[in-house]
């Protein structure tokens, strides 16, 4: 239960500041660079302007990349959240044959290097009609993301008492009523966290996407990667900042709904 939190010492405060600074270095550098009007990326910046932000938001290619990333992330969320949640729920609530094998299979995508998943899917679908569609990118992401949400929900369900659902049934609730009156409100935070995790993990993903997109479906992180690799265009810093802001906002939402305790439980 609640550990008492000791008053922090000066040393501890100092250490915290130092560590935070260390962690923030890349973010700060990127942020400052993105405000530099110069035509190439350099540090320290020579001035401050929103030039490249304007460029980013008026350039069709980058706009598309941002939109594509959102499409893929939404599609991934729609696929992986129900799958991951239902799988974890079934695993916790029911006894069935080959349960342990099921559990292992569910975790495999999480531990497989994404590079391999990307190549495998390319080989499998590269010559089909699915090639280069949002759908195939989202499927790749959903493999990883379902697996991750499965693990996340296991942690959430370990604190969940299925007796509440039995009590609901006992009192006359049908399956739908039981879900909306008991399961959903009690697991709401975990569900929201799962949605946010699914979205952000897909939004920033590059390793699998790079194999599977075409110029029409290219996502923001893939654009960013190619831009950095081939031209070192300063707008890449703006794209980075946007990726980071997305990630930070969503992560703050996750901790709000899920609490930090749950994150430590699944080893994050």
């Amino acid at each position: 239960m609640g550990k008492t939190i000791a008053k922090s010492s000066i040393f501890l405060n100092f250490a915290c500041v130092l560590i935070s600074a260390f962690i923030l270095i890349p973010v700060v550098i990127i942020f400052l660079t993105s405000l530099d009007p110069a035509k190439y990326i350099r540090f320290p910046p020579s001035g401050f302007s929103l030039l490249w932000y304007e460029y980013f938001f008026s350039n069709k290619v980058w706009q598309n990349g941002l939109l594509n990333s959102v499409y893929v992330a939404v599609l991934n969320t729609i696929i992986s959240v129900p799958c991951g949640i239902l799988a974890a729920y079934a695993y916790r609530k029911y006894t069935f044959k080959l349960k342990n094998i099921f559990n292992t299979i569910m975790i495999i995508p999480y531990v497989t290097p994404s590079l391999l998943v990307g190549i495998a899917l390319l080989m499998a679908f590269g010559r089909t009609i699915l090639r280069g569609t949002y759908f195939i990118v989202a499927i790749a992401h959903a493999l990883w993301s379902t697996s991750f949400i499965y693990i996340l929900m296991q942690a959430a369900l370990s604190n969940y008492d299925f007796t509440y659902e039995e009590a609901a049934k006992d009192l006359g609730a049908n399956l739908f009523q039981m879900f909306s009156e008991v399961t959903l409100p009690l697991l709401k935070s975990a569900f929201i966290a799962a949605i946010l995790f699914a979205f952000i993990s897909s939004f920033g993903e590059v390793t699998m996407a790079i194999f599977l997109v075409t110029s029409k479906t290219v996502t923001l992180p893939v654009l960013l990667w190619t831009s950095l690799k081939y031209e070192l265009h300063p707008v890449a810093t703006v794209a980075s900042v946007i990726c980071i802001i997305f990630a930070i906002v969503i992560f703050m939402l996750i901790t709000k709904f899920f609490g930090t305790g749950m994150l430590s439980k699944i080893g994050m």
């Binding site: 009590a167 006359g172 609730a173 039981m178 009156e181 009690l186």
Partner: peptide, 20 residues
């Protein structure tokens, strides 16, 4: 007949009052 259609009610060992 499924539980929700039976004319029976249970008081559970750990009560299971809905916390929300």
């Amino acid at each position: 007949v499924p539980a929700h259609k039976r004319d029976v009610c249970m008081v559970f060992q750990r009560l299971a009052l809905f916390p929300h």
